[in-house]
Structures are given as C-alpha cells and as structure tokens.
Design a protein around this nucleic acid. Sequence first.
DNA 1: TACTCGTGGGG
DNA 2: TCCCCAAGAGT
Length: 323
Amino acid sequence: MTATTETSPAASAGAAPERTADAEAVDPALRETARALHSPVVDWFAAHARDLPWRRPEAGAWGVMVSEFMLQQTPVNRVLPVYEEWMERWPRPADLAAEAPGEAVRAWGRLGYPRRALRLHGAAKAIAERHKGEVPVEHAQLLALPGVGEYTAAAVVSFAYGKRHAVLDTNVRRVFARAVSGQQYPPNATTAAERKLARMLLPEDEATASRWAAATMELGALVCTARSPACTRCPIAAQCAWQLAGAPEHQGPARRTQSYAGTDRQVRGRLLAVLRAAKDPVPQSDLDQVWHEPVQRARALDGLVSDGLVEPLEGKRYRLPLT
DNA sequence: TACTCGTGGGG
DNA sequence: TCCCCAAGAGT
C-alpha cells in the first residue's frame, strides 16, 4: 500500500466543516500507514538510540543548537570532540556572544564550512541581545537567527523543547522516500510534497511526535543508510514500500557530485587553516605559499574577507576577525 | 532553482 | 584508488 503524497480525492472531496482553517486534509490510507509505522520506529529508537551528548538532559537547548550547527553536513564522529570543547568553553549563548567571532572560527577547527562558526556566533549574540540569553522556543524566532534554516529550527523545537514539529533532514527524507513512497532516494531538492508528507506522518501526541522525529532520523543514520541499507535490522522492513516493490533502482537524475580539488573552496580551506593556527596576524607572503595560482588565490582571500571570516590589517597582514 | 560553501572517512 | 556522502543555509 503505497501512500499517496498528494491530495487524495477521498480526503478533499467534502472538506469537513469542523476542520480548523490550517488543518490539512489527511488521506485515510496514509493515516493508517502512519499509525502502523509509529510504534515500531519509536520502539526501535528506545532500544537502539546512540548515547550522544546533545541528547542528554544537561545539554539543554543551547547544546542542541550547537550540535545542530556542527552537524550541518558534518558526520557525528567528527563533531563529538569539538562539541565537547565548545560546550565547556561556552556553556551559554552569552559566553560565546562575549567572544571575538574569530575565536569561534578557530575553535571550529576542521569541521568544514567555517561560515557556520560565524553564524553560530551571530546566533549567540542575537540570543543574548534579543532573547535574554535563552534559546527561543518559537520556530519563527529560531528561523530568524543567522544560520538557522527550516531544518535546524525544527530540530531545536522538537529535540530541545519536545514540541510537535515535523523534522525533515536528509535521513528522514530517505526513510520516507523508501518506507512510504517506494523510492530508493528522495528528490535532489526537498519538495513541498515531502514537507506535506512529513506533516501527515507526524504523530498527534506531542511527546510521541518528538520521539518520532528523533527516531526517524536515527533510523536513517544507522539502518536505512544511503549506500547499503541494513534492511534485515529495520523495524519496518515488512511495511517498507520500497522493499515491497522489490527495491527498484533509483530512476531520474543522479545527484550531481560536488568536486573539490582545485576549487576555490579548497584554496579557502588552506588559507583559513593557516590563519587558525596563527596566534598573531599573518603576512600575505605566508598566505601566498598555500596556492600557486595567484588569481584564484586572491579571489579566495577576497571571498573570505567579504564573508567576514578574515580581517585585513595594515601592511598586507590578515587575521581571524576580532569583531 | 541551482549553485556555493570544507573536510575526511568508508565502501 | 576513487568516489560518495555527511543532522543544511544562504543567495
């Protein structure tokens, strides 16, 4: 029974008058599908969830937010040590807000995409200034913070505050694509249909919805993986639309793989690595050593400066930003 | 929408 | 070895 992801005639025909304005019509078949998935997935999570530091109560909303920033496109194993250092050094948003942004970039280390460090610092400042030092509870307020998008806002709302909110990351999208839509992989870009499906599948009960969000993510991360899913260990393999369809190969455009060698990104990474390691301002002549091609080198450095990741000083010297 | 933005480990 | 991909956001 593959669930339809769009409006079904049955559900939308005679719109129930008692529905509130923003309530969505729910396909009865999909509702049944959802109920059949909730218990197995949530129970599996209770038995197999990893003991990650940001899942412990003492992490608090700030800990959850820090972890979510770090986990944007970076694997858990690499995040763990940096997260621990970070939380020890800056246990509250105000602690980070009081620091120079360059210190956040330095402490970010080699997690990659260092703009995230800058944005996390900016988010901490906004929280300190506009929210009395407390991580906001409202999704819209979270969304207004730098570096917080649809996913991160939902994750904080759900994981930190236990609210009922659909959480749609790459893991969840893959689980739903397979279990419900019968596809090996989700579309390249998140679609409105996926968002709607995620809302439809969300359990009504708040506490269950929160567990469901974390559980579907964990299932995607540990079992329903991209490359080689461990279907024998999957709690919903018997109901999986993709399995029931014979695990067909993905059709449609392949995800375009991003190159790295020789790109500006690589040059930026090398430049920033030098600056992270330096305690004092670095003369340009030192930065020139990291890349042979002068035009690309200059472009990369300019980009870092305009992104606010690097601060230019008098006499062709550079450092991580003090302000 | 499609593209940019780091880094490194596992298949 | 090489390639794929990993709890996205911003433009």
